[in-house]
Design a protein around this nucleic acid. Sequence first.
RNA 1: CGGGGAGUAGCGCAGCCUGGUAGCGCUCCUGCUUUGGGAGCAGGAGGUCGGGGGUUCAAAUCCCCCCUCCCCGACCA
Length: 585
Amino acid sequence: MLRLSTLFVRTLREDPADAEVPSHKALVRAGYIRRAAPGGFSWLPLGWLVYRNVERIIREEMDRAGFQEVHFPALLPREPYELSGRWTDYGDNVFRLKDRRGNDFIMAPTHEEMFTLLVKDLYSSYKDLPLVIYQIQTKYRDEARPRAGLLRGREFVMKDSYSFDIDDEGLAVSYQRHRDVYIKVFERLGLPVVIVSAMSGAMGGSASEEFLAPIDVGEDTYVRCTSCDYAANVEAVRVPPPPAEDNVDAPPAAVEDTPDTPTIVTLVDLMNARDDLRRSDREWTAADTLKNVVVKLRHPDGTFEPLAIGVPGDRDVDMKRLEAAVLPAAAEPFADADFAAHPELAKGYIGPGVLGVASSSDIRFVVDPRVVDGTRWITGADRPGRHVVGLVAGRDFTPDGVLDVADVRAGDACPDCGGSLELARGVEMGHIFQLGRLYATALGLTVLGPDGQQITPTMGSYGIGVSRAVAAIAETTLDELGLCWPRQVAPADVHVVVAAKPGSEQFPAAERLAGELEQAGVRVLLDDRDTVSPGVKFKDAELLGVPTIVVVGRGLADGVVEVKDRRTGERRDVALAEVVTALRG
RNA sequence: CGGGGAGUAGCGCAGCCUGGUAGCGCUCCUGCUUUGGGAGCAGGAGGUCGGGGGUUCAAAUCCCCCCUCCCCGACCA
């Protein structure tokens, strides 16, 4: 039994100044966690109880699925990461250190290599597969900017599992099993999640889905169709291309003088103001223009490549979508110095004249899916103050490819049903994806197949943010009074408040009741403090967020106590003799 | 790493502009009173004013450098 008179906790009357997001404020105010380092938190007894409940539920579901838990060192040697190429790929995001002999180590940011090597170490036959092993461990990443309390620390706990199969069919089964387990886990945690398709990015592989908790302060943006069940991370949205048009007979493109129109807005204004350029049927809009944005790709080998991206003028290039699309390269803005190195690019007036197939430059030119053959555009003429009107895609220029990285907006068409998309924010709680043979190949994991040939197994990777889940659950359940835990993860089932004078009969009565509840298997937090007033106890009970609050107070004279539901605020009087039965669940 | 804000008692803040005894509320301790919605009175404890340099008779306050925290961006689970 937890007793507030001796529990190692101190609630704060005011929000901590260094917290911004509601869950962070509430967890600190309620005495669940304390900041201990940049991006690092200490767990106090109540917080640790919640954490352990979350961890236990995840572990139970993993074990029930037949997955087996392993445990790795957090301090890892350099070699495995050298083999996979991630010693350098990870860059500044990993904590590095040396031992006394000068050997390199890292604080594990993730354990793909160790899993792969462990299987290589022990298994050598296809008969040993499939296999799923998992860990629940602390990960260390030197985040440039830790924030939002537990939602994004530099030290955090993840459940990570890896599946090993001999073929794609097996991988698909392992993937589906994880998907089913995850749905059950989040349901048990009381954490609402939206499953969205995600990029698998540089990791290769095909299927990849994220489990996002819908939280306003989340750092992931996703879309959801208002008509069908399509949902995707904004990075993974695929814009449905419009049908190609037959415009080969359209009037030839004409170069026009358009002085002082370096931006889309100025260009459209000028087009509509000029009698000779005005459209007869409607006004020109930004969507009639083709904006060519140049960025610089930094490849993993350190080389740079300019890339021109043509998007409809009413859209911008979404840097996050671009980054996701060009992995493992990174995208950087095209600086003035870069323009100086490419005099053929007239800033503000860049057009397909110098881009694309058979063009004068060797700059790769990719376009938005909306730029299909036959569409007509107003775009730069590659000379300051000049634009081309009526340029037909496929007839007058041919891009080197399609790249779907324009910003996604609410109201955009759903790629599945054509309905309308809406945008929302979320926190990534889980991620499942088919990793493929990347690590197995890099680390030389093979097994002997039935025909005596070496087979490289294919892998799946599946994560759940454990410590993050505590914050996410808090975030999605708290209210203006404080925390409000789902019973499964709450630090106790019942919070017994003694509201009476010290020395009064309520104290021993509450003790007895708490004892009986415990006997009946109910987890009890007893506020047996005789030094604080009832008002303080009520406030604390609400702040701490135990789902049921029992008040042993003035009703005791009539043989009743008050049973209050923390979430709904509903309260009812229950005869003392019936409390245990009523609360046993 | 870019832009903005902020570091003064355990927590939340004022003081800084205009240099001169370090303050307020909460918390904590002692005593008395109080006990169904963050109690009252009285007394008390607690601070190298983020760190280091400098200016000055004198620095929380002015100047320089550094560190940390928060927010927006970049990056990431």
